[in-house]
């Protein structure tokens, strides 16, 4: 698959940020699932923020993709929050009957970040050294 067809995943401290700015086609959505799983494992991220403010609509495929991502992240010990859903997309989603099982949502990136775990002490290399030094 081409690089241009992949959605970038940014590391933001102990979190990963995915900003979906284009209407995804199916292969792109599947590639995102794989890429994100890899990045969570690689970075040990505890939280994933998915910004969907660029999405003009969510159909059942994209809805299921978001649920699947949240489920995959969960078993890799990371929480997912979907942020920035447009009001008209929310209205359409409910009409369509999609419930996004397992997906937590927040209105803004800031509020989404507040819902995710804060960096823990054991992620700080300085403290690890202190522990091994021991009494």
């Amino acid at each position: 698959m081409d690089r241009v067809n992949r959605i970038p995943i940014l590391k933001l401290g102990h979190l990963l940020l995915v900003s979906i700015q284009v209407d995804m086609h199916d292969r792109m959505a599947l590639a995102l699932q794989e890429d994100l799983a890899e990045r969570i494992a690689e970075t040990g991220a505890r939280g994933v923020l998915i910004d969907i403010s660029g999405l003009e609509f969510i159909d059942s495929f994209i809805g299921r993709m978001l649920s699947d991502i949240a489920g995959i992240a969960r078993v890799l010990d990371a929480d997912t929050v979907v942020v920035g859903m447009r009001p008209v997309v929310a209205i359409t989603l409910v009409d369509l009957g999609l419930t996004l099982p397992g997906v937590r949502t927040a209105l803004t990136v800031e509020r989404g970040m507040a819902m995710l775990p804060a960096p823990t002490v054991d992620e700080d290399p300085g403290d690890e050294e202190a522990e091994t030094a021991g009494p």
Partner: peptide, 16 residues
């Protein structure tokens, strides 16, 4: 806008 979004979503659903 809301009806545009609903229509496009329906089309995407049916195309699939």
């Amino acid at each position: 806008l809301v009806d545009q979004t609903k229509f496009v979503t329906a089309v995407s659903e049916l195309a699939r």
